[in-house]
C-alpha cells in the first residue's frame, strides 16, 4: 500500500510530541555533549595548584574572547615531550588490536557453533553467553587474580599435574599476558553476540546451494559464510576495540608496573598527580584516536536500524 510511514502524521507538533524529543535531547546535550567541550577547554588551560586543580572555567561568556587569547597548548606539548605518553598510546593500541584479534579467534568459532546448534538449544546458549555480562565486570576481573597469582590456583593445578616443580610458580600475574586473559575473558560476550546475530540470520540453503554446485564445506565457509558475516565481524570488533583502548580496571588489577595503557595513565594523572588539565589532554587525544572506530561503529548501527 502507499502508506509511506515517513512524514507520518500531519505536521502539527503538539507539545507532548516535542517533549518526547526534547527531554532526552537536552539531557544528553547537557550531560554528554557539553562535558566534551569542557574537557577540550580544560585541556588547554594552565595547571593551578588550587582546588579545583585548574584555573576557573566560566567567568561568564564575556570571557570567551579572553579565553581565546590565552589558548595554551602546553599540556599537549608536554604529552609529546614525555615518551611515557606516546608509549602509553601505542601500547594501548597494540593491546587493543591484539586482544580484538584474539577475541575474534575465540569468539568466531563459538558464535558459529551456536548458530549451527539445534534451534531449540540456541536461546539457552545465548543466555549462557549473556549471563556473565550481567555479573559485575569488577568481580570477573577479580576472579582471575586468585587464579593467576604466583601462589594461586593455576600454579596449584600445574604443580598437581606435574607440569611445574613444587617450588616453581606461574609468572603470569602482573604481566601483559594476564591483561590479555582478562580482556578476552571480559569482552568475549560482546564479540560473540554480534557475530552470532550475523551468522544466525544467514540462510542455510546458501551453503546447501554452494555444496550442490560442487563447493566443499571448508571452501564454502570462506566463500559464503565468512563474507556474509563481515558486518558482524566489524560490529563485534568495534564494540570491543574502542573500550579496550581506554580500559583501566583490567591493566590496573592484572597488569604489571610496565603494562602501559592510556586509561591507567589518565587515572594516575587524575587521581595520583591531580593534574586535571593534563588528564583532560590525555582524554582528548584518546578521543581523537577513537573518532574513526566510533564513526565506523555508528555507521554499522545505523544500517541495523
Amino acid at each position: 500500500m502507499a502508506t509511506v510511514s515517513e512524514t507520518h502524521t500531519a505536521k502539527k507538533p503538539s507539545p507532548a510530541r516535542w517533549l518526547v524529543v526534547a527531554v532526552p535531547y537536552v539531557w544528553l546535550l547537557l550531560f554528554f555533549a557539553a562535558p566534551f567541550l569542557i574537557i577540550l577547554k580544560i585541556s588547554l588551560s594552565d595547571t593551578a595548584i588550587a582546588m579545583p586543580p585548574y584555573t576557573p572555567l566560566f567567568q561568564g561568556f564575556g570571557a570567551l574572547g579572553d579565553f581565546a587569547s590565552k589558548l595554551d597548548f602546553e599540556n599537549y606539548l608536554f604529552l609529546t615531550d614525555d615518551p611515557l605518553y606516546i608509549r602509553s598510546y601505542l601500547s594501548s593500541l597494540r593491546i587493543a588490536v591484539i586482544s580484538t584479534f584474539l577475541l575474534l579467534l575465540i569468539g568466531y568459532p563459538m558464535a558459529l557453533a551456536m548458530a549451527r546448534a539445534p534451534t531449540s538449544l540456541r536461546p539457552t546458549l545465548v543466555m549462557l553467553v549473556i549471563l556473565p555480562f550481567w555479573t559485575s565486570f569488577l568481580i570477573r576481573v577479580y576472579a582471575w587474580i586468585g587464579i593467576l597469582k604466583p601462589d594461586g590456583l593455576l600454579t596449584l593445578l600445574l604443580q598437581t599435574i606435574g607440569l611445574l616443580g613444587p617450588n616453581e610458580q606461574v609468572q603470569i600475574f602482573r604481566t601483559d599476558i594476564a591483561v590479555f586473559i582478562g580482556i578476552v575473558y571480559s569482552y568475549l560476550p560482546f564479540m560473540v553476540l554480534p557475530l552470532y546475530a550475523a551468522l544466525e540470520k544467514m540462510d542455510n540453503t546458501l551453503l546447501e546451494a554452494a555444496n550442490d554446485l560442487g563447493c566443499p564445506p571448508l571452501k564454502a565457509f570462506w566463500k559464503i559464510t565468512f563474507p556474509l558475516s563481515l558486518p558482524g565481524v566489524v560490529a563485534g570488533s568495534m564494540i570491543c576495540f574502542i573500550p579496550i583502548t581506554g580500559e583501566f580496571v583490567i591493566p590496573d588489577l592484572l597488569g604489571g608496573a610496565d603494562t602501559l595503557m592510556i586509561g591507567k595513565t589518565l587515572w594516575t594523572e587524575f587521581f595520583g598527580n591531580r593534574d586535571w588539565p593534563l588528564a583532560s589532554a590525555v582524554a582528548v587525544i584518546l578521543l581523537v584516536m577513537l573518532v574513526v572506530p566510533i564513526a565506523i561503529f555508528q555507521n554499522q548501527q545505523k544500517k541495523v536500524v
Binding site: F32, P35, I39, I242, P243, G246, L266, A279, S280
Partner: peptide, 10 residues
C-alpha cells in the same frame, strides 16, 4: 562504546 575514563572525567 566510549571508554569509561573519558565519560567519567568529562
Amino acid at each position: 562504546v566510549m571508554p569509561e575514563v573519558i565519560t567519567g572525567l568529562s
